[in-house]
């Protein structure tokens, strides 16, 4: 696009309205963030200008307002990022890299102000690993069933069922794990404490399952029908077509699905905090999935109540680790999905 076309996209009228309405919106946000001026006044002015704009010049004003709505997503994400880092800064400054690598005792001492996130990171890694081992293969199989195998009536049942499975609140999953599976482990398998990494991982896996199913199913459904027909015309069976054509073509979408599932599993809070015992120590030995520890999410949820000062800052540091991990996974899966669109889109 050349410069003229670019300026033509924003005619002077729109630019003027954008200046006034957008400026007032920015002022409102600024007033709310800094607290210098009562944001209500700025918000009032913003509403007034928007109202006047809508009444007199509806088209351009709506364009500006919609653009502001679109910007709000960036604003919220930016604010989250800034406030997490600002609040986590004191403990980052105090502990330095030890926060992420210190594995010797003391690991977490709120009175001595020693904070190491390694047990929590390990807890998150183990539960996420178990969860992905459950949700990955089963989710892919579910997606193949919905998109390739199921007759119409079965699809009508299983698709909403997967949605509902995603809709059951995490606290209810956790409650079931706490009331049913934890006692099961203690009474039937003589596990010495309440709450095991294995149960937490399995429950989180079931919770991440719908994400994997629906995203992978979208990827499989996006494979052009011509590719499948070509394979079937050569005399291969449906299953040969699925394994040799459909799944390889959708592979990037499927890996994006698994990545998103990993993201869900990493960020899952309530099931972890209820099921795990939330002790800030490593399991003994490290690979013992029948021992209990704490995960990044359950650390925050179980300790926010009595935290203040440096302790609270350490909880925010856990939030930062979570946020950065999940953001990397999200961006990674988007890059993969874009790659897939380019590959399958062909000459579009």
């Amino acid at each position: 696009m050349n410069v003229r076309a670019r300026t033509a996209a924003f005619d002077p009228e729109t630019t003027a309205i954008a200046g006034v309405v957008g400026g007032l919106a920015a002022l409102t946000v600024l007033a709310f963030v800094t607290g210098v001026v009562n944001p209500a006044y700025a918000a009032g002015l913003f509403c007034l200008s928007a109202l006047v704009g809508v009444l007199t010049r509806q088209g351009p004003t709506m364009k500006v307002l919609l653009g502001l709505a679109a910007l709000s997503t960036v604003l919220v994400l930016g604010l989250i990022m800034v406030y997490l880092f600002v609040k986590a800064w004191p403990v980052l400054e105090k502990m330095g890299p030890d926060l992420l690598v210190k594995t010797s005792e003391p690991l977490w001492d709120t009175s001595g102000h020693v904070y190491s996130l390694t047990p929590m990171i390990w807890g998150t890694v183990v539960t996420t690993g178990i969860a992905v081992a459950v949700a990955g293969p089963l989710g892919l199989a579910g997606a193949v069933f919905i998109s390739e195998i199921a007759p119409g009536w079965a699809r009508e049942i299983i698709k909403p069922a997967v949605e509902v499975l995603a809709g059951i609140p995490s606290i209810v999953y956790g409650f079931l794990g706490f009331m049913v599976l934890n006692p099961f482990m203690m009474y039937e398998l003589s596990v010495p404490q309440n709450g095991t990494l294995l149960i937490a991982g399995l429950v989180i896996g079931v919770m991440a399952l719908p994400t994997v199913v629906s995203v992978a199913e979208d990827a499989l459904a996006a494979v052009p029908e011509e590719m499948k027909s070509g394979s079937l015309a050569l005399g291969s069976t449906d299953w040969q077509t699925t394994t040799a054509v459909t799944i390889p073509a959708a592979l990037s979408g499927i890996s994006a699905a698994v990545l998103l599932g990993v993201g869900r599993a990493v960020g899952e809070t309530m099931a972890a905090v209820i099921i795990l015992a939330n002790v800030t120590e490593f399991p003994v030995p490290g690979f013992n999935v029948f021992d209990s520890t704490v995960s990044l999410t359950s650390l925050i949820a179980s300790q926010y109540g009595n935290a203040s000062g440096m302790h609270l800052s350490a909880l925010f540091a856990a939030g930062v680790v979570l946020f950065v991990t999940v953001m990397l996974l999200s961006v990674g899966s988007q890059l993969i999905e874009r790659h897939m669109e380019r590959k399958l889109g062909g000459n579009q």
Partner: peptide, 17 residues
């Protein structure tokens, strides 16, 4: 990117925010 990022941000991080 911001929308997808918000979608995958863990719920507890929203609470911290």
């Amino acid at each position: 990117i911001a929308t997808n990022g918000l979608w995958s941000t863990p719920s507890i991080v929203f609470g911290l925010f």
